[in-house]
């Protein structure tokens, strides 16, 4: 984009169409930003305080683990862990919101009843049950957290990017293009007046000569 464009009609038309294009882009980006922010608030209400919850749950789980370790030793716990029935997998789907890929999750039940866990309840004590329960709870929170926190982080980054683009268009690019169009049209008008005056004076001179 030249700062001093040629003052021709072609250039004027070009500049005007560029302004129009920029305006259209600006409007679209603004809509995108608003849509993203709406989505963001929808998820935010779900995500509140999940982090703190997870931190608390993990702390509880680690304490339970330490206690169980003191009672049984690591090997016994590991032996029990090997016998645990596997949790069903998760189902991750990727949604696309205005170009932002957001994972959403479907989870089957992670909490199990005492007898469903799979290790021998005779060979182990309640301490190990506590550990398993604490970690199951933590895992549950992790599932909840994973879709919200991740999505929020992505949305925020995208919102920031879009916002910057909107502002760049609104405050820099569009005014500059408009200025350019104005400059060209002024020059054109000036040239028109110039030639008009010139014609007039020539005409006068010709009349005098006759």
């Amino acid at each position: 984009m030249a700062e001093n464009p040629n003052p021709t009609r072609m250039e004027l038309l070009k500049a005007k169409s560029r302004v129009r294009l920029a305006r259209k882009g600006h409007k679209l980006l603004k809509q995108k930003r608003d849509a993203l922010i709406m989505e963001f608030f929808k998820i935010l209400s779900k995500a509140q305080d999940l982090r703190q919850e997870l931190n608390a749950k993990m702390k509880k789980a680690y304490t339970a683990l330490a206690v169980a370790q003191a009672y049984h030793g690591m090997q016994e716990i590991e032996a029990a862990a090997l016998a645990v029935k596997r949790a069903p997998g998760v189902k991750v789907e990727v949604r696309n919101i205005m170009g932002v890929k957001i994972p959403s999750l479907e989870v089957a039940q992670t909490k199990k009843k005492l007898l469903e866990r799979g290790y021998s309840i005779i060979g182990t004590s309640a301490k190990i049950d506590e550990v398993a329960e604490a970690f199951e709870e933590a895992l549950d929170t992790i599932f909840k957290l994973s879709q919200t926190e991740n999505a929020i982080r992505r949305l925020i980054l995208e919102i920031e990017k879009t916002k910057r683009r909107v502002n760049a268009l609104e405050y820099v690019l569009i005014p500059r293009l408009e200025n350019q169009a104005k400059l060209i049209s002024f020059r054109l008008e000036e040239m028109e007046r110039d030639s008009f005056v010139m014609l007039k004076s020539i005409k006068r001179k010709l009349q005098k000569a006759q």
Partner: peptide
């Protein structure tokens, strides 16, 4: 169904194993 993976220190791994992470 997708799988769950845990990368952590050994104690944490054992804990999640107890919770059913494969």
């Amino acid at each position: 169904k997708e799988k769950i993976a845990v990368i952590a220190d050994s104690a944490t791994c054992t804990g999640f194993r107890l919770a059913g992470a494969e």
